[in-house]
Design a protein around this nucleic acid. Sequence first.
DNA 1: GTCTATATCGAGATAGAC
DNA 2: GTCTATCTCGATATAGAC
Lengths: 215, 215
Amino acid sequence: MSILGKLSFKDQAFKLREDAILDATTRILAGKGFDLMTMDDVALEVGISKPSLYKHFKSKEDLVGEAMIRLIDGAQAFIDALSAEQGPRDKLSALLEWALRVRLAGGLPFLPSTSSHVREMLTRNLRYVTRVLKLNSALEKLVERGKKAGELRADLPTDVILYSYYARTCDPSVEYLKLYSKMNDDEIVAAMLAVAFSGIAARQADVRRQADGAG
Amino acid sequence: MSILGKLSFKDQAFKLREDAILDATTRILAGKGFDLMTMDDVALEVGISKPSLYKHFKSKEDLVGEAMIRLIDGAQAFIDALSAEQGPRDKLSALLEWALRVRLAGGLPFLPSTSSHVREMLTRNLRYVTRVLKLNSALEKLVERGKKAGELRADLPTDVILYSYYARTCDPSVEYLKLYSKMNDDEIVAAMLAVAFSGIAARQADVRRQADGAG
DNA sequence: GTCTATATCGAGATAGAC
DNA sequence: GTCTATCTCGATATAGAC
């Protein structure tokens, strides 16, 4: 009787601890990245020992994969919850804003932008890949609908818009502005959105640039 | 006599080897980044042994610092060589194009975008910091002149434009387009420049977005 | 399931011969 | 100055006690 109760309580605690581990992992990953994050860091931050950590996640790759999956799930949930009345551009803007605010609150960027190591690792994680493909497919449709609606530039390939959009979710400018400017989070988000959609050039200046550089 | 000749020849070879080491370091850094690059990798790629490598550069940090310094020097030389008649926007565009082409040819991005480890390391390298500050100062002046000339958006803080500009030099979109699109290097460069200066939104759509998201 | 203590291995850096 | 062989240390992962 009390044994059964105790067991289910322990299961509950187990699940809660798993979330705590993922929270810690997310914070540390955001702070120093995959290569510099050690399992000791995570164990220490959670307040458990390293072997206990390995009872929950069988490897560092597995642990990081789960953290990334939770992030993608959050993005998918956010996009699913958007009103059907919003246009493609507004939806993309809202999701980008969400991603930037997650990062400013100490979260992770969508993409492991640079490290080819991390990219390969995640590529081997089928559960992660499945989710990313689904999200990517939804965003690709949004971009194409946006182009047709005249909200996004039709002169650019969809790939270019889509990858540029992803790149903004992990844009290092955010950290630099946070560190070296006096702007608050709202101002940083507004500026990043403005640059992502409208660029840094003044609007009246017509773009007649042509590739003819110093190769 | 022949001894002196032999010595100076050896010195010359020494210098040439140092350049070869920096070339290899640059390639490997571009490929797998700082944390995954090993000194064995570099020694193997150059065709020398690890202790010989340490005769040229006293540590991994020193080696990478020199590679980054060479890159910054290249950028500074490029910007110094630009015609005095070009406007700020054209100069910024030309330099960004140069940086993107360097990367597409297997070179390094300007900024160690993500890794806080690399950033701290370089911050401790006075020779590197000096050069970066000089280049940054030149670019900041260009941005401010561009704003006054009506070529760059005056509604954005200079910091925002400058950091966004830097971010484009290390934008991961470049790798993704290289990997997954059928575009050639010229097309990729043109697209990146177009997005950097004009954004992804269609031009007629006026930006009336306001920060009001899902925090 | 949780811990202390340890195996193992990769990588930065060096000793010492030639 | 170049090499082979080695030191050292830190990090992933696990053995074994409780």
